[in-house]
């Protein structure tokens, strides 16, 4: 939502000054029509639903509706932050969000650079295709595979047992300390190949003469990666990092929901699960909305801060 409005702003700044005449409007009527559709779409699907935020300040009852429910001010927010579970849920979301961001981000860059170093064109293509296929699997399938692979009789335990590393199967899903690494691993497996595509294309955009010049200056393979490739994709890296920072609180819902169980509840529940549990299941839509608002506000703050930081250090930025 915010990205769209920002893009528009930029367009306005850069447009050459053309006087708005009927002729001009007529000339651009298809464009105008399309933008109207998109603006309409934005209003209907992004801005109108914000009216529902009112719920968070009410003791909302579906039978009474938005207009006749009793207003309670910030009561729901007060209850939210006095709830230990919610505080724990914020911690889990932030922790998993940051771990996922760092791990998938770093892995994608490393993978793209490594892939770029492969000389055999066909091998490269095969690896790329295979690596991004998991992106198209839904989480229910990925968690199914994980659950099987990590179960007591699964391939991982079998392997460890046969290599005599362990005597008894490890119950991976029974220990809270394993949960975050498992989630991070699943994310890396699923998204690395896909995320690498954009870096790969950024790498291909680097002028080959730079590599030749570097070679003449005596740079080896690592030298080229360090002095040409990495600086060449720096702006891409920063922009993507900025955009992803805003997503940190979207640490996921499906994977935690599907892999979690009673024993690891204290580390597996995210804000989204909390909203589902208390907002939808227990029918307290107000508290669910309040939690959602909190999430949106924090996400916007994160983007602003990260963008500001990029601005200070003179790097690429979103706006």
């Amino acid at each position: 939502m915010s990205a769209i409005t920002k893009k528009k702003k930029k367009q306005v700044e850069n447009e050459p000054k053309v006087p708005i005449t009927w002729k001009e409007i007529k000339k651009q009527k298809v464009l105008l029509f399309w933008s109207a559709v998109i603006v309409l779409y934005g209003i209907i699907f992004y801005y109108l639903p914000l009216g529902g935020w009112l719920m968070a300040f009410q003791n909302y009852k579906p039978a009474k509706g938005l207009l006749h429910s009793e207003f309670v001010g910030l009561e729901k927010f007060r209850r939210l932050f006095s709830d230990d579970t919610f505080v724990r849920v914020i911690r889990n979301t932030l922790a998993m969000g940051v771990i996922n961001l760092v791990v998938t981000f770093v892995m994608a860059i490393i993978f793209a650079i490594l892939l770029n170093e492969i000389r055999l064109k066909n091998t490269k293509k095969v690896i790329q295709t295979v690596s991004y296929l998991p992106h198209f699997l839904s989480w229910i399938i990925v968690t199914g595979i994980l659950h099987d692979a990590l179960s007591g009789t699964g391939i991982i335990n079998e392997l460890l047992r046969n290599l005599h590393i362990i005597d008894h199967s490890i119950d991976f899903f029974a220990h809270p300390s394993y949960f975050w690494p498992i989630v991070a691993f699943a994310n890396v497996w699923k998204e690395t190949g896909w995320n690498a595509i954009i870096y790969l294309s950024a790498i291909t955009a680097i002028d080959p003469s730079l590599y030749e010049a570097a070679a003449i200056d005596g740079a080896g393979r690592f030298g080229k990666i360090r002095y040409v490739t990495l600086p060449g994709i720096k702006s891409t890296i920063i922009i993507l990092l900025l955009m992803n920072v805003g997503n940190v609180l979207n640490a996921g819902f499906e994977i935690q929901y599907l892999l979690g169980n009673g024993l690891v509840k204290s580390v597996s529940e995210t804000i989204d699960i909390y909203v589902l549990k208390w907002g939808i299941s227990q029918g307290d839509y107000a508290i669910g909305t309040a939690a959602g608002i909190f999430k949106s506000v924090v996400s916007i703050l994160l983007i602003v801060i990260a963008n500001q930081a990029a601005k200070r250090s003179g790097e690429e930025r979103l706006y």
């Binding site: 579906p62 229910i140 589902l276 907002g279 939808i280 299941s281 227990q282 029918g283 839509y285």
Partner: peptide
């Protein structure tokens, strides 16, 4: 793939 409460809560919403 849901609990009853989740399904009902979604319908009501």
């Amino acid at each position: 793939g849901q609990t009853a409460e989740e399904a009902v809560g979604t319908l009501i919403a």
